[in-house]
Design a protein around this nucleic acid. Structure first.
Length: 411
RNA sequence: GCGUCGGUGGUAGAGUGGUCAAUUACAUCAGACUGUAAAUCUGACGCCUUCGGGCUACGCAGGUUCAAAUCCUGCCCGACGCA
């Protein structure tokens, strides 16, 4: 992998650039579509190509459990397995330490909502084993109970590197602990220290795997074809922890950085800015799991190059669609006889072929095509949005575009 | 015509003297979802309310009872059986 910065936006941390990989080039900032189990839910790889998706991210935990990393390796990696031949990424399984651990059975997500996210949460319950979670974090690694069959599996930095090696992505993430936005300072600090130790172990093991695979080769693999390892910055909502993590990880020889973990809706841009101000400028930064339109503007402005998010496909499947005037719930009664497209002027397949009334009908009838058509529209919406953000950096109209978009979107 | 069974909220279908404005499911109306335990989950769902409660309701009309969706009588309607 090779990252080049094409243009920096004056007065901000934002930049536009390119990431070259063995499987193609990514224009950044870029929105990475999430294909957890080597499929973007409800979409075929052909549809991803039609949408001009640039890069797909799969998940180590899910593919390790099913069908198993060896099967994926035999297929040539998760990209070829799913007939996706562009750039790829895999997440390390670290997020599942959160979603199957502290978040299990709680109504917390990685982005806390509300003005006082630390209140009204049962911390006692969160950090005891009351909710009987499927993941338990120790210094050695994370002990998972499979959500599929209850079987137990230990993920360590080393096993995650090996699994990701087999999954074959161009860019992979270090194994980290994604903490809850409700976790108190003491826990965040303790977890951060652990994630730092894990980061070093990941680096060592990843280098070992690479060295072994290159041993028999006549010459060294050129940088752009080498597979990349991204370190993951944690630290919750605390400035000192975030900055410490950025300095510590920034001094290690990672190819790029992921920014993970906890935020509140209001501090995404701020907290990310703390981090990116300290991370090495010449390496790409991926804001993990973030993808509301507003967050994308904030993240870019704060210096992020890559974003991934399940929202477009998840909320799409559940009947919520993006428009430039804000989100709409297509199942609402007012759309049953609305024969306009989801959004006038939208060039996606769904909008150029189908009406709101048809979508409303498919959703009400529980037809699986509803999820597909909605996902096509939502993914198209976010991909085009980030493309426009990129263009606005290149021609110095970022702030005008941001203002124009947000005024309409959040009106 | 006789006999049997049955008529419950938008639908299906529980309940068979008080704890019933009535289990549940579906439908309906809304909401949530940010490195996917997610084609998922949550709330509302007779009318009114100062949120204490009040009112009207289980085919219709009467009756028994302190109390009826639940028991009795008549009527109307439906299914099946016998003529």
């Amino acid at each position: 992998m090779k990252f080049s910065i094409e243009k920096k936006l004056a007065g901000t941390l934002a930049r536009a650039g390119t990431i070259e990989t063995a499987n193609g080039t990514i224009q950044t900032p870029a929105f990475v579509v999430v294909g957890t189990k080597a499929t973007v839910k409800s979409l075929t790889s052909e549809q991803l190509r039609s949408l001009n998706a640039q890069v797909v991210l799969a998940n180590t935990y899910h593919l390790y459990l099913q069908p198993g990393t060896d099967i994926v390796e035999q297929a040539g990696g998760f990209g070829p397995f799913m007939d996706w031949h562009g750039p790829t990424m895999t997440d390390s399984g670290g997020f599942q330490a959160f979603s199957l651990g502290a978040a299990f059975g709680q109504q917390v997500s990685k982005v806390a909502t509300g003005k006082a996210p630390m209140q009204n949460i049962d911390l006692e319950g969160l950090y005891s084993n009351k909710s009987n979670p499927l993941a338990k974090v120790t210094d050695e690694g994370v002990l998972f109970k499979s959500h599929l069959d209850g079987s137990k599996h230990l993920f360590t930095p080393e096993s995650s590197m090996l699994a990701q090696w087999k999954l074959g992505a161009d860019m992979i993430f270090a194994f980290d602990e994604c903490t809850s936005p409700t976790a108190p300072y003491d826990y965040q600090a303790k977890s951060l220290a652990r994630t730092y130790e894990w980061a070093k172990r990941c680096l060592v093991h990843w280098n070992k795997l690479n060295a072994e695979s290159e041993a028999g080769l006549p010459e060294k693999i050129p940088q752009e074809f080498r597979r990349a390892l991204f370190g993951v910055v944690q630290g919750g909502r605390f400035q000192d922890l975030r900055e410490q993590a950025a300095r510590d990880l920034g001094s290690l020889d990672f190819d790029g950085y992921g920014i993970g973990g906890s935020f509140t809706k209001d501090d995404i841009g701020t907290a990310v800015g703390w981090v990116n101000a300290l991370l090495p400028e010449e390496k790409p930064r991926h804001l993990l799991g973030i993808g509301e339109p507003i967050d994308l503007f904030e993240g870019v402005q704060a210096g992020c190059d890559l974003f991934d998010c399940v929202l477009p496909t998840r909320i799409g499947r559940h009947g919520t669609l993006y428009t430039h005037d804000g989100k709409i719930h297509i199942k609402n009664a007012k759309f049953v006889a609305d024969f306009a497209p989801i959004e006038d002027g939208c060039t996606c397949y769904t909008c150029t072929h189908h009406t709101r009334a048809y979508l409303a009908h498919l959703f009400r009838g529980d037809e699986i095509t509803a999820g597909t058509l909605a996902s096509i529209h939502n993914v198209h919406f976010l991909l085009r949005l980030v493309e426009k953000i990129r263009a606005s950096i290149l021609d110095d109209t970022f702030f005008e575009y941001k203002k124009e978009f947000l005024e309409k979107y959040s009106r």
